[in-house]
Structures are given as C-alpha cells and as structure tokens.
Design a protein around this nucleic acid. Structure first.
Length: 430
RNA sequence: GGAGAGGUGGCCGAGAGGUCGAAGGCACGCCCCUGCUAAGGGCGCAUACGAGCUUAAACUUGUAUCGAGGGUUCGAAUCCCUCCCUCUCCGCCA
C-alpha cells in the first residue's frame, strides 16, 4: 500500500511515477473520495463530540442526584443523525481503502523505464556458456531418458503442469534444496524457518497477493459459522508466510536486520499463461523454492537487496551454472516491488536465459499493509522495509543442471557441491 | 468430535454501564541521588485520522481504537447476539 500522505501531498507526482509502470491512477476519483471523507469525517466528529460532552454532563448530574430530563431531551435527536454519518463515513473509508489496495508500488528512481521484458537492463553476465559437440536435449528428454521424470503419470494423478520425479532424479531435486538451505543458513547468516503452506487472507493481503491477484492462487474454502465463509490459500511463495512473521509486530531496533530462509513448495494456478511453457517443469502448479527474506531498517534496504542478490548468485556459482542478472524495468515489475533484480540461468536447449530467481525491495509497501514496524532510536514505531528473493527456484535449477551438465550418452554429471548430498554419486545414468 | 477458560497498551495485569485511553507493575527515555556496580527517588512514555498553529517539527485540541462485526443505551472495555482466535482437559490421530 502506498502512503496516503504521499497521495495527498503530491498526487500528480505519484500518478506520474505509477504511469511509468503502466498503471493509470484515477486521480480525480481519489480527490473526490478524499473530499467526501474529509467533510463527512469532520461532521461526524463534531456530532460525536456533542454527544460525548452531553453524556458526560448526564453522568455528572446523575452522580449528584440532579434532574437529568432536560439534557436527555436535548441529546435525544442526535442519535439518528450520528448513526447515518457514521455509516457514510465507514462506507467512504472502505471505498478509499479498496482504492488504495489495488495501487501498485511506486518504482524506485533507479528502475529503468520500459514496457516489457524487452526493456529490462542487463546488469552482468557470469560464467561461461557450455559448448556441446552433440545435439543438446531438453530436460524433458534427458529426464525421461534416465527414467527420472514422468509427466504422463503426474498428469494422470493430478493433471497438466505437475511433475513426478523418481529415483536419483528425486534425490537430486532434494539435494539441490538441501544444498541451498545449508548454504544460506550456514554461510549467509539466515535463520532457517519452517512455515505453514496454507495461509489466511490477511497474510495474502499483507504481501500484496490479495485483493488483486486472487485468480493466481489456489483457494482452500472453509465454511465457518452461519454466514461465515473465510478462505485459506495455498502459498504461491514462501515470501507470504515468512514475511508475515512480522505482521502486526513492533520489532526492537537491535533485532534488525532479520534474515530468514525457508524451503517450501509453491502453488500457482498460472491463470493467464495457458499457452506458455507447456512442456516440462518450467512452469508448474506446484514447485519447490528456497526463499530468502530480509526484514530491515529503511535506511539499509538497498544495501540489503544487493547482499541478498549476491547470496542467490552464490548458489549458481557453486553449481557452475552460467547466468545473468537483469534489473527489471518499470513495466515488468511485480505489484509490490519498488525495485527488482531477476537472475536468469542459461538453458542450452532453449538457447537463452530463463528466470530462476527474483529479488525485490518492497520498501515500506508490504510493511504498511502488514503494520510491520520497529521502534526507532527515538522510541517511536516506524515502518520496516521488506526484501525477498528466490535462492533459488528448485525445479528450474534442476532443469538447468540437467541441461548444462548433459553428456553425449544421455547421462548427466552431478555438480561437485551436490555429491555429498547424493551419497557420493557422480553422475546420473541408466 | 465433546467439555471448559480466556482475548485489555511494547509486555504483564486491574477494571464488570458514566468523571476510563484505561489502576498497578515491567520494559523504555530524561533527570536526581550514589566512589563504581546494584538499589532508591522524580518526571515522561499507545496508535491512527482530523482541526488549529507552523516552512517543518514541537505543541494545543477533537474523534476513533480494550479480538472482529452487529445490537441495547443519552452514554459500552463493562450488558446482549454472531463470528474469529488462543489455552486446558477428554477422544481420535502422524
């Protein structure tokens, strides 16, 4: 959520910044709602003040045993008018909140202006693209050839966009997650957390998935009391449960920064991408991801983002996978982000780089929604900044390992750092 | 699934229709005292949104907020209804 003060003070400026990411702010609507809110709120408060002071008089008079009927009569009519005003006020406030809840974050000044992926800025390329003396296969052919990937059975069990891993392939998938988790926890100073995979709507609102992107989520309906229906949701990323650790909290200054790493499955309905990446495990309804989250002091958030990005890169470097880092342009950034770096890994079969991590600074956007604060040096609560990034998407990392380490005979070499997790195995073969 | 007990400020915890934004304690901040430390004393200390004043802050003032939403009442933390959450015991269960 944006700071409503920013909208009040500099509506045109905010609108301009939002326009760079393709969001048209209905400024007139905002002004109208604000004007309504202001006038109704003033009148309501005047009316409430009158009621309160009269009621106080009644209390005092009664305590002295005086006659009270005169004042009672005076206050009698206040009720209806006040109730109406209060109702109107809460309506307007709800409209205003709904209006604010769907406005994306304003991009940081360093974000390149652009419309799409094509306008992203390449920051650096790392590693050497492997050369193959034979015709490269994609991960599906490699995996099926090794009897490790089985999409047909997954489709029978569940449907499209699910995968089934078997034998050493399943173990390699687990090895990757373990390796990532260990690296971040032991070498990068993150606290490992195990979190719920099903969360409530408040948490989804906190990180910005709701109210705008419900169609991307898997909803778990629950029937509550009489009129009560309250949904749970499967997490689309560990960002949601992990960042919400600090929702409605006031963190002591000395506890900052907080760094968490979690390995979770992620569930996405992938509504709106029906035709894309239908083959293989690039785009699934269920995939595993190791996620890094930092909860930081506002002045440290960009420093933190560079650090976090570096931590994610280490994984690729240790795995010996070539990648590049791109800074997303305004038009390609997610709803809540102020600045995002994507890490893209080289996939030989696609002859291109594909996203394997996304590292963002949300500044106070999520913190404001979550009321996640810390106590500053003056002792006053202040909004935190939140950051997160994949470190990394496990399924896509497996794809990258299979494709980059494939051999002419259909086998796949196992990167050194993973071998301890594979019982010393050096290669996947039939 | 059955039975019970609770949800109050950063934390603990009183309050049971009026003068309660809420006693007391802890934590925190400033000050005093003290050779150091410990102990002691004084003062301050919720958040949000308005209005006034202001370049701004500070300040003054109004309103709201005692799990959430509704209701009763001139007036609700306190009474009624619905819901959510937490805890304890029994059952079941990995």
């Amino acid at each position: 959520m944006l700071d409503i003060q920013a909208l009040r003070n500099d509506l045109a400026g905010v609108a301009e910044r939002l326009a760079t990411r393709g969001f048209v702010l209905d400024a007139a609507r905002f002004q109208e709602l604000e004007a309504q809110r202001k006038s109704i709120q003033t009148r309501t408060q005047e009316s409430q003040a009158k009621r309160n002071s009269s009621s106080k008089l009644i209390g005092q008079a009664k305590a002295k045993g005086e006659d009270v009927s005169a004042i009672m009569a005076e206050v009698a009519n206040l009720g209806d008018e006040l109730k109406q005003l209060e109702t109107r006020l809460s309506e307007v406030q709800h409209e205003l909140n709904a209006f604010l809840a769907v406005i994306p974050n304003t991009p940081h000044g360093g974000v390149p202006i652009g419309k799409s992926e094509a306008d992203n800025l390449e920051v650096r390329k790392v590693g050497n693209i492997p050369k193959f003396a034979f015709e490269v296969k994609d991960h599906v052919s490699i995996g099926e050839g090794l009897d490790g990937l089985d999409f047909d059975t997954a489709a029978k069990i569940s449907g499209a966009r699910f995968s089934l891993l078997k034998g050493p392939m399943a173990r390699l998938h687990r090895a990757l997650a373990q390796f990532m988790l260990d690296t971040h926890a032991d070498q990068h100073g993150y606290t490992e957390v195990y979190v719920p995979y099903i969360v409530n709507a408040d948490s989804m609102r906190g990180t910005g998935q709701l109210p705008k992107f419900e169609e991307d989520l898997f909803r778990v309906p629950r029937v509550m009391g009489e009129d009560g229906e309250q949904n749970f949701y499967l997490i689309p990323t560990a960002e949601v449960p992990v960042t919400n650790i600090v929702r409605d909290e006031i963190v002591p200054l000395e506890k900052l920064p907080m760094k968490f790493v979690a390995h979770t499955p992620c569930f996405r309905s992938e509504a709106g991408s029906y035709g894309r990446d239908t083959r293989g495990m690039i785009r699934q309804h269920q995939f595993d991801k190791v996620e890094l989250v930092q909860i930081v002091h506002p002045e440290k958030s960009y420093e933190g983002l560079e650090e976090l990005l570096g931590h994610a890169e280490v994984i690729l470097q240790k795995l010996g996978l070539p990648y590049r880092v791109v800074k997303l342009c305004t038009g390609d950034m997610g709803f809540s982000a102020a600045l995002t770096y994507d890490i893209e890994v080289w996939l030989p079969a696609q002859n291109t780089y594909r996203e394997i991590s996304s590292c963002s600074n949300f500044e106070a956007f999520q913190a404001r929604r979550m009321q996640a604060r810390f106590r500053n040096a003056q002792g006053k609560p202040e909004l935190l900044h939140t950051l997160n990034g994949s470190g990394l998407a496990v399924g896509r990392t497996l794809v990258a390992v299979l494709e980059n380490y494939q051999q002419a005979d259909g086998s796949v070499m196992i990167p050194e750092v993973l071998r301890p997790y594979m019982g010393g195995m050096e290669k996947l073969s039939l």
